[in-house]
Design a protein around this nucleic acid. Sequence first.
DNA 1: CACCAGGCAAGTA
DNA 2: TACTTGCATGGT
Length: 210
Amino acid sequence: MNSLGSMYRKAFKHFGRQHWWPADFPFEVMVGAILTQNTNWQNVEKAILNLKREKLLTPKRLSAVSLKKLASCIRSAGYYNIKAKRLKSFLEYLVVRYRGNIQKMSQIETGLLREELLGVNGIGPETADSILLYALNKPIFVVDAYTKRILARHGLISEDSSYIEVQKLFMQNLKKEVKLYNEYHALLVKVGKEYCLKNKPRCNICPLKK
DNA sequence: CACCAGGCAAGTA
DNA sequence: TACTTGCATGGT
């Protein structure tokens, strides 16, 4: 068992299943992935609820709604003007390329799909991979700020490692399983929040401690 | 009051 | 290419 494997076991033993992604259907995951960029999930939940209450949470409805209306619905998620534009960019892609049909989208090969997503304005590596893993069930590992911070504090990577480098480290040392990737990333976020905050590290009592 | 959250793109040199 | 800045609400 390698170090990433044993880290996973310790995290799972301590925190158990995380039940990610907290959403009812794949399109909701995709919208949430854009809304949660550098933002607390609680703020995103309020925005998602607004969209649901307004019956806007489908590709066609969200494509039809005005930018101003969309922005007002997602206000609580922060950066609401830029995120409204990013959602529109994504919808343009989804509707033009797949007629808003997510089943159709999920048939495309994962590597190609990833490149397509990265071509959409407002979708970077973490957002693209979150969509691939949590909305489309593709075996892609999601890297975020907590992932890097935790691995760096354990001496497994340097602080300035690139996204792809860290992603490869996980994918080359773990079984390529959707279930495992799903749970592992969610656990790293959980561990990060509890024990690996920027200015309040609690490495001494972290359950991953060596 | 300061700090920052499940990032990303645009601007600058 | 490498570094800096703007985007913004809401909880601790």
